[in-house]
Amino acid sequence: TGIVNVSSSLNVRSSASTSSKVIGSLSGNTKVTIVGEEGAFYKIEYKGSHGYVAAEYI
């Protein structure tokens, strides 16, 4: 489990890349469940599926 540490919002992406499609966003202080790690990204549970967020902001 981690907490989103941004002042505005954090993009949730379809894969572990900044060039991948943005599938949603999370606001600051949102609690997320981390299920894996790929490079600089965490794989998280997101809306019944999975998404990827930049690990530096969690």
Results as ranks from 00 to 15, higher is better:
T1Q: 11
T1H: 13
T1F: 14
T1A: 10
T1Y: 14
T1N: 09
G2N: 05
G2D: 04
I3G: 04
I3K: 07
I3M: 09
I3S: 06
I3E: 05
I3W: 14
V4C: 07
V4S: 05
V4E: 03
V4Q: 04
N5A: 09
N5C: 15
N5D: 06
N5F: 07
N5Y: 07
N5I: 13
V6Q: 07
V6P: 07
V6K: 12
V6M: 08
S7D: 11
S7I: 11
S7W: 07
S7T: 12
S8D: 12
S8Q: 12
S8C: 15
S8L: 10
S8I: 12
S9W: 11
S9A: 11
S9D: 09
S9M: 11
S9E: 10
S9Q: 11
S9P: 11
S9T: 11
S9H: 13
L10D: 02
L10C: 15
L10H: 03
L10S: 03
L10P: 07
L10M: 06
N11Q: 14
N11Y: 10
N11I: 15
N11V: 15
N11D: 15
N11W: 10
V12T: 01
V12D: 02
V12Q: 00
V12R: 01
V12N: 01
R13F: 15
R13Q: 11
S14E: 15
S14D: 11
S14R: 10
S14I: 14
S14Y: 10
S14H: 10
S14G: 08
S15E: 13
S15P: 01
S15N: 09
S15A: 14
S15K: 11
A16G: 06
A16E: 02
S17M: 07
S17D: 12
S17C: 09
T18M: 14
T18C: 15
T18S: 14
T18V: 13
T18H: 15
T18I: 13
T18K: 13
T18E: 13
T18N: 14
T18L: 14
S19T: 13
S19N: 13
S19I: 09
S19D: 13
S20H: 04
S20I: 02
S20A: 13
K21N: 10
K21H: 10
K21V: 11
V22P: 05
V22A: 06
V22Y: 05
V22K: 06
V22S: 06
I23E: 01
I23C: 05
I23W: 02
I23P: 00
I23S: 01
G24S: 02
G24L: 03
G24M: 05
G24D: 02
G24I: 04
G24H: 02
G24F: 06
G24K: 01
G24N: 01
G24R: 01
G24T: 02
G24Y: 04
S25R: 14
L26Q: 02
L26E: 00
L26V: 09
L26T: 01
L26G: 00
S27I: 11
S27R: 14
S27Q: 14
S27A: 14
S27F: 10
S27P: 15
G28Q: 11
G28L: 10
G28N: 14
G28S: 12
G28Y: 13
G28E: 09
G28D: 08
N29M: 11
N29F: 14
N29H: 12
N29I: 06
N29G: 15
N29V: 06
T30E: 12
T30V: 09
T30P: 03
T30K: 05
T30W: 07
T30L: 06
K31L: 13
K31D: 04
K31R: 14
K31E: 10
V32D: 00
V32C: 03
V32A: 01
V32R: 00
V32E: 00
V32W: 02
V32K: 00
V32N: 00
T33N: 11
T33H: 09
T33M: 09
T33V: 13
I34S: 00
I34G: 00
I34Y: 02
I34W: 04
I34P: 01
I34C: 04
I34M: 03
I34Q: 00
I34N: 00
V35P: 01
V35Y: 07
V35I: 14
G36C: 09
G36I: 04
E37G: 07
E37D: 06
E37A: 13
E38K: 06
E38H: 08
E38C: 13
E38F: 10
G39T: 03
G39V: 03
A40V: 09
F41K: 01
F41G: 01
F41P: 00
Y42E: 03
Y42L: 12
Y42N: 03
Y42K: 05
K43T: 04
K43F: 05
I44Q: 01
I44L: 02
I44H: 01
I44V: 06
E45Q: 08
E45R: 07
E45P: 04
E45F: 08
E45W: 09
E45A: 08
E45H: 07
E45T: 07
E45D: 08
Y46R: 00
Y46D: 01
Y46Q: 00
Y46H: 04
K47S: 08
K47V: 06
K47Q: 13
K47W: 07
K47C: 15
G48R: 04
G48Y: 05
G48E: 08
G48Q: 07
G48H: 06
S49Y: 09
S49W: 07
H50L: 10
H50R: 04
H50E: 07
H50S: 07
H50C: 09
G51A: 09
G51N: 01
G51E: 01
G51H: 01
Y52R: 00
Y52V: 00
Y52G: 00
Y52K: 00
Y52P: 00
Y52I: 00
V53P: 00
V53L: 03
V53F: 02
A54E: 15
A54R: 13
A54Y: 13
A54L: 15
A54V: 13
A55M: 15
A55V: 12
A55E: 04
A55L: 08
A55Y: 06
E56V: 10
E56Y: 08
E56R: 12
E56Q: 12
E56C: 12
Y57W: 09
Y57C: 15
Y57S: 09
Y57R: 06
I58P: 02
I58G: 01
I58N: 02
I58Y: 03
I58H: 01
